[in-house]
Every structure is written in structure tokens, then in C-alpha cells.
Design a protein around this nucleic acid. Structure first.
Lengths: 223, 223
DNA sequence: TGACTTTAGTCTCATATTGTGACTAATTCG
DNA sequence: CGAATTAGTCACAATATGAGACTAAAGTCA
């Protein structure tokens, strides 16, 4: 697909749909309708009068048949990198989907993030930005909870955080922080997972609490 | 400029230029060339082949005659809100300029952030997002340093942080955190500001240091 | 049955980080 | 000189955090 349109500049709306598949994150990828060997993130040329968020929701809807449980714009991408469309820029979004309820429609498939098919450079950049966006918002939005079923064990929650942050966490510290945040409440159910002591199931049920007030942080290493 | 083009969808590149003017933040606003009563953020229809960042730099260049010392994209805005152009979406950027070196060209003026002229709804949203972006990146990038001259007193730095965060900070804690971050080094100059003890001048000179490793935080209040 | 393994959940303590008031220092003003 | 003003430091209490060790409840298997 060569660029033939001179002006005005056009744009697409692309979505990075993320789910947790077993022990790895996975991204929803679409098979190209013209060249079955090519893959891309789901995208769309927005219709006239369609808002960005609506277009992104539509892209997700077309791919999964349902809406992501959380979605956020992660920016406009262009800057010379190629894209399956001839558009100059693409407005990218991240969407989160719990894996249980996420069955891709025909032509779409989940790919583990460590083993993605080749994507256009622009969409490759979107995936990277999406992951970083998830990681940086992890302490500001209930992202991990959204990737789990309605009830879950605390170990499952911790493993989700470890998966998203790509680092190990200490069990006692994790639970202490979670306690202090008043984000979960226990159900009266327990789940026995074969070996080992059964775990209590919790649900996401945030309580109001006073805003934490912290001073400044200088967390950047350099320039 | 009326909307006459039906398709394909077009976009603009807009820039929120921010500086510190005395005791308040200020935004660079452009007077409309057609209607002298109307104001807008500086924006531009990108040229063919021009990257987003290049277009944003060009917008800043046209308005100030120089480049912001720091600039970052803050997202694409559309979603039905009006804009001075007929574009469906606008890709917004924040740029920081130290006030000393920032003389607006003809047709542009700094407005204190608490007293902006009426802007289009879309650009109003950009300003709000820009401020939030600055605040949220304040601990990850040397934003406050960029808004100050090359040498500054620690009180000036603290006041800049207070201005950006819109909250008071405790002097001793601020300096302790700053010490720990290895971000400034003293010069051998002092500045006497009339009454009171003279203050030592510092410069931004970040040193390498080991990455801080923290566990998880659950800093969101609810949903 | 009863050791052993596995996973869940808790406790405690040392250490690090942070909030805050009070202190000392160097200057101007009158 | 002494009060006022701004800079810069100290010390201590209060929290927050990292990490190991502990208890609890299940399955496994001889």
C-alpha cells in the first residue's frame, strides 16, 4: 500500500487489546484480509462525526464482540513509521480484557507478548507504549483487578501484579499494602486448588479513604 | 475557516506552551488573525511528510522564535469538542519555556493560567490535560529545573515545585529529598535578595545513582 | 496413620523514609 | 544595637517498607 493521497492528512484509530493468558500477557492481533501472511493491530478509519473513544470502542467490539473493561488513549503515533494504512498518524488506545470472557472473532487471535508476529513499526511502538502505560498507571487505576474474574485469591492478584510489573513481589508486603488501601473485601468462599491450603476468595470493593499526602519525589535518574 | 472538506478526516497539531510568570503559571495564546477578539492556542496543519514532533516544534518556533526546552505529546483530542480549525482531531503537546528567554512574537501573548481568554472547548481541555501531565511527570523529569534559569537558589526551586504542584512543601523535607537525588550541585556564587541571608546558587547537574526499587503502591482512591 | 510437601496467611523486627518543629546563620532596616 | 527576614540545618517522632520466619490447612504417599 503506497501513499498516494497528498492532502489533507488522514488518521486511523488503533487499539492494543491486552489480556493475561496464563503466565504471560497477550495482545490481540488481526490477520490482514488481503494478505493472510500479514498481521496488524486492529484499527479503523473513523467515520465522520465519530469520536475517538467511540471509534476505539468500535474497533474492540468488532474484534471481540464485547467492550474492554477499561480503555485509555495512549497518544498519536506517526513520525515516519509505517502503518498498514496510508494514514499519516494513528491514535492508539490500550484496552484491557479479562481472558475468561475474551474470545476473538474470526480473523483475530491472541499472541503472547513475547512472541508477537511481525507488526508495522508504528504498531510495534504502540505495543511498547501500551505496556509502559499499563505499568505506570498500575498504582493509579484498578488495572490488575480488571484483568481478573470478579472473585479471585490474593495470590492470583499478586501474580497479576508481578506479571504486569515484570518483577517479583514479597507476599507479606503486598498484602500489607493491599490491606492499607481498602480495595478488596473477602467473600465467604474458599477455593481449593489441589495441593496446599485453600485460599479465600476476594472481590474488588474499594472503600473511601482519606487522600494520601506525600511530599515531592525526585525519582528520575538523569536528564 | 469553515468546514468544507467532508473526507478524509484531517488533524491539527496544537501546542500548550507553559512558563512560570512571577507567582503563576502562564500559557501562550495566539490572537486570531481573522477575528482580533478571538484567541486560541498556537496550532498548525502539519505539512505532508512532517512528523508530529517536528510540527509541534515548528508551532513553538513560530510563536516564540525559539524551541521549548522540553516538549511532550499529551494525546489526541477530538470527541466532538469544537476547535478553531475544522479538523476532527488535534494532537496536543506541552512545551516548557523559562520565562526569561521567552518573548512572544507579534500576535502572541502570555496569559496567567487563572485568567485565560475564552478558548475553544477542545483547547480548554488541552490546557487542563497539559497541567495534569506536568504535575504527574514532575517526579520523573526535570521539569521544574527547565523552567528556571541555569542557576537558581533552592528556595526558587522549591517555589517552582509549589507552583507546579499547587501545594506547599516543607523546606527541610524538600532539601533532604533533593540531596538524596543527586540532582543539583552548588556553584560558588551567592545571591543577596535585599533583606535576609544571601542564598547559594545551584545548577542542575544530575549524577548517576542506583535505581530505587520499591514494591507496589495502591494509590488510587476508588474505581 | 503420620511424616512430608505445598500453598495460604500472619507476625515481627530491623531499616528506610517522611513530617515537622526548632534551631543556627547571615543579612537589611531602623 | 536589636528586630525582622530569609537561608540553611538538625533531631526526633511517626510511618512505611523489606524480608525472614512463623503458623495453618490442605494433598501425597509410604
Amino acid at each position: 500500500m503506497r501513499d498516494r493521497t497528498p492532502k489533507p492528512a488522514s488518521y486511523t484509530v488503533d487499539v492494543v487489546l491486552v489480556t493475561a493468558m496464563g503466565n504471560e500477557l497477550a495482545i490481540l492481533v488481526a490477520r490482514s484480509s488481503t494478505d493472510r501472511e500479514r498481521w496488524s493491530l486492529p484499527w479503523r478509519n473513523p467515520q465522520a462525526g465519530e469520536t475517538l473513544d467511540a471509534a476505539a470502542a468500535r474497533v474492540a467490539q468488532d474484534a471481540l464482540g464485547e467492550s474492554p473493561i477499561w480503555m485509555e488513549q495512549i497518544g498519536a503515533f506517526g513520525d515516519g513509521k509505517r502503518h498498514p494504512s496510508n494514514a499519516d498518524v494513528s491514535v492508539a488506545h490500550v484496552g484491557l480484557v479479562p481472558h475468561e470472557t475474551a474470545t476473538p472473532r474470526a480473523g483475530y487471535a491472541w499472541f503472547p507478548i513475547g512472541d508477537l508476529p511481525p507488526l508495522s513499526p508504528r504498531q510495534r511502538a504502540m505495543v511498547e507504549t501500551a505496556i509502559r502505560a499499563i505499568q505506570s498507571r498500575l498504582d493509579q487505576a484498578p488495572i490488575a483487578f480488571r484483568l481478573l474474574p470478579a472473585t479471585f485469591t490474593l495470590s492470583e492478584l499478586q501474580h497479576m501484579y508481578e506479571l504486569l510489573l515484570d518483577k517479583r513481589l514479597h507476599k507479606a508486603s503486598f498484602r500489607r499494602a493491599l490491606q492499607g488501601a481498602w480495595l478488596v473485601e473477602p467473600t465467604d468462599e474458599w477455593r481449593s486448588e489441589g495441593r496446599g491450603r485453600p485460599a479465600q476468595l476476594f472481590r474488588y470493593a474499594p472503600k473511601k479513604r482519606r487522600r494520601l499526602h506525600r511530599g515531592v519525589r525526585f525519582d528520575f535518574l538523569y536528564p
